[in-house]
Design a protein around this nucleic acid. Sequence first.
DNA 1: CCTATTTAAATGCAATTGCATGTATATATA
DNA 2: TATATATACATGCAATTGCATTTAAATAGG
Lengths: 144, 144
Amino acid sequence: MTSNPSETTITAWARLLKAQAKALDAVEANLKAKGHPPLAWYDVLLELKREEGGTLRPLELEKRLLLKQHNVSRLIDRMEQKNLLKRLPFAGDGRGQLVAITEQGQDLLRRMWPAYRASIQEHVGSKLNESEMAKLAALLQRLL
Amino acid sequence: MTSNPSETTITAWARLLKAQAKALDAVEANLKAKGHPPLAWYDVLLELKREEGGTLRPLELEKRLLLKQHNVSRLIDRMEQKNLLKRLPFAGDGRGQLVAITEQGQDLLRRMWPAYRASIQEHVGSKLNESEMAKLAALLQRLL
DNA sequence: CCTATTTAAATGCAATTGCATGTATATATA
DNA sequence: TATATATACATGCAATTGCATTTAAATAGG
């Protein structure tokens, strides 16, 4: 038998939704205003960049970025169109594949970061001091 | 000149996105599995229910729920189709309108709450104790 | 008052997402 | 090793969302 959430929990839940939506909307809008693609593209490229060889399987991207399988497939389609990444066969499993970041992908990552970074600071960083931010990060980690 | 976000801020930002996405995905999936409509419908109905007279203007819903104007318009369309709310003329301003919750809307609110409540507890409430939850709620408030 | 501008909401069309299913390959089991 | 089942990714079609524009009503300025 599961107990009911406390009022405090309900408040925290509501604020989690609102705070994230508000900050994300602002960050996405800023990226777009600067002529950049959506944040999801940055997320994909960053995951790839951090890997040895700059490759990951779609399945792994799906797990890390909490995306649905069909959305990963189509996100890769769009990004491949723009030459930000390319699909490679995966030797270990004929069903699978590898997605590899390209030079252009790395370049986009570098070009997006200044705008992205400034938005994070404006909409999140500036709202709490360092120790409060550390506390927030720790509490959010507990939800993961 | 805006400073750059600290590492702590970047971590908190990443976790805000992930924690919200994870919890929200789970809650939405649970509602759907129980045969309920999306959370946004609940949000709209709850906002209306809490008002004197059970009415709000679309513009107000837009602000409170952080939705785009055209999405509010179409969300209202779909909910009106299902008789969960109805559009009324707004006397004070001929351009505007009032959206009013119906009996069926109030009923849906009541029927969704047990499932929603259980999900909030499972995916958020059970992860932190009361004082931690209060701290989280307070920190998130600061982002708003 | 008349005209220009702003505001509230709706809508046509394109892009994205959700959902179900398809295709190919891998693994398990008889 | 033949057959059934599971897994990885793709895709057709419907629903939703984004974007630009439209419509109607309100307010501002001459």
